[in-house]
Every structure is written in structure tokens, then in C-alpha cells.
């Protein structure tokens, strides 16, 4: 069944986590700001990746990882037009230019770097094709996704921490009640001053962000620094009401079970 969606709602880290846990095989196609990326997985492990029109041939990957020099790269590129990556790899290994492990390492690093670039894509759509496989002439590898997921998660952590500290932008700010603090004596950045100038119990953080043309992350960063400095406080909404009453009548357990059993019997006959 379909596995597709939008990166705004479902991050790359979450998709990788799903692929890893479900040990999926197939190709993840992501259409985002950096073009179209195709990432192939085998049983939940990264096997191959291609981003946009970027040259991901073995010669290009070895050149990028400095395993071959520019002159060797030119020669190999000419030769690569006639042979597949798999054949080229064998030639290089048999000729003693490079070891099999170095080929694998270079490809693993390159494919992982493609996935890392996807972490910066906040916008875009994706779908997972269970049948698509890497081109047959290319070398595929096997990279566990755990480390990549952890890296991606680290990038998201800042965002998560800010969200935890400032769960909603619909709350307002007020200056902390600290007599003797003079804002003029505090060195604030331009962004911080812009936010400070709009602080008022009637202005929500979202309104301030709209006025100062900041996105959610930027306004949260500024507010967080002001909170940490003790200059402002969030005006939080009142606490929710007390717990509602219990669902089942306060009778003994046997009566309660009998009531539920009556419900079951009736639903069965609907």
C-alpha cells in the first residue's frame, strides 16, 4: 500500500526510522528544494542514492573521496563510458589501485552524504516504491540507518527543545518583574531588539513573528534567548479543569463487567 506524504508533516528522520524498523526494501523518492532524490533500501539498510543530476558514478565518488587524483578521474571517466561501475571497480581492485573495502567505504560515505543533505529539506513530497531497485550496472552497499537517524535527530533536537520550551506561539510575552534591570544596558542583537519592541501582553508571539517577518524557528530562538536571560516571561493560559468523573457507575466490578458484556452482546447483533 501507498507510503507517501509531505515533508512538512513527516520528516526524513521519521521516514528513515519507519524504513529501518519495518526493514523495508524499495526506493524512497523525495521531491524537494534540492531536486529529486532517489534513495534505495534493502531490508531497512541504505543501498544506493542519487540526488538530482549529480554524478554518482564510481569514478566521481572515488574522486570526491580523494582516492584518485584529477588526472586518474579524467581517464576513468572516459573509460567509464564503456564499462559499468561494477566492471570498473573490479579492474581497479585487480590492478591494485584500490582495495574492495576502500570502494565500499567511499560509496557508503557518498550515499550517506546524500541522505544527510535530505535532512535539511523541510519542504517537499515523498513516496516509497516497493519495487524500484538501483540501476543494475551500479554498485550497491549496505549501510545501517541507525547512525544516520541519530544524526538527523540531532539536527531536529534544537527545534524540539525550542518547541518544548515554547509549545505555542499563541501565547503572549511580558517583561519579567525584575526591578533595576535596564534594557538599555543589555547588549541585544538586532533580531532581539525587534522582538523586544513588540512585547506586550496583548501581542502573541505569532503576531510578533508576523510583524517582524520571522519564521517559527527564528522567533522561538529569539524568545528562548530572552527567556534564558530572564528578561521576559511567557503568559501561560490558565490550568485545565479538574479530572472528569469516572465513566462506569460506581458499583461493584461484577456489575460493571456485566454492563460491558451487555454492550458487547448487543454490538455483535447489530
Amino acid at each position: 500500500m501507498a507510503l507517501k506524504g509531505n515533508l512538512r508533516d513527516f520528516t526524513i528522520t521519521q521516514i528513515l526510522n519507519l524504513i529501518n524498523l519495518a526493514r523495508k526494501t524499495g526506493t524512497l523518492v523525495v521531491e524537494g528544494p534540492g531536486g529529486v532524490a532517489q534513495v534505495v533500501f534493502r531490508e531497512g539498510k541504505l543501498a544506493y542514492a542519487q540526488i538530482g543530476e549529480e554524478d554518482n558514478s564510481l569514478a566521481a565518488v572515488l574522486h570526491r573521496s580523494k582516492k584518485i587524483n584529477p588526472a586518474q578521474y579524467r581517464i576513468l571517466k572516459e573509460r567509464a563510458n564503456q564499462v559499468s561501475d561494477k566492471e570498473l571497480g573490479l579492474v581497479l581492485i585487480n590492478a591494485g589501485y584500490i582495495t574492495q573495502q576502500e570502494v565500499i567505504n567511499a560509496l557508503q560515505q557518498y550515499f550517506s552524504s546524500v541522505v544527510r543533505r535530505l535532512f535539511t529539506w523541510a519542504e517537499g513530497i515523498f513516496h516509497f516504491d516497493n519495487d524500484a531497485q538501483p540501476p543494475p550496472d551500479r554498485i550497491s552497499v549496505k549501510v545501517s540507518l541507525e547512525n544516520l537517524i541519530i544524526e538527523g535527530s540531532r539536527q531536529l533536537r534544537e527545534w524540539a527543545q525550542l518547541q518544548e520550551e515554547i509549545p505555542s506561539l499563541d501565547m503572549a510575552l511580558k517583561f519579567a518583574d525584575r526591578p533595576g534591570t535596564n534594557l538599555k544596558n543589555i547588549q541585544l542583537s538586532v533580531e532581539e531588539w525587534r522582538v523586544v519592541s513588540y512585547i506586550h501582553p496583548k501581542n502573541s508571539m505569532r503576531q510578533i513573528a508576523q510583524t517582524t517577518k520571522m519564521n517559527d524557528l527564528e522567533i522561538r530562538r529569539v524568545v528562548y534567548s530572552l527567556l534564558q536571560a530572564g528578561l521576559v516571561e511567557i503568559i501561560r493560559p490558565a490550568a485545565p479543569a479538574a479530572q472528569p468523573p469516572v465513566a462506569l457507575p460506581m458499583v461493584n466490578k461484577t456489575t460493571q463487567k456485566s454492563l460491558v458484556q451487555r454492550l458487547i452482546n448487543r454490538i455483535r447483533t447489530l
Binding site: 500500500m1 501507498a2 507510503l3 513527516f10 521519521q14 526510522n17 519507519l18 524498523l21 519495518a22
Partner: peptide, 10 residues
């Protein structure tokens, strides 16, 4: 429709 088990992870 997403697969139910995929939804569990999501």
C-alpha cells in the same frame, strides 16, 4: 491508504 503497520511507526 498507508499500511496499518507503517501507520503504527508513524
Amino acid at each position: 491508504a498507508w499500511d496499518v503497520e507503517d501507520m503504527r511507526y508513524a
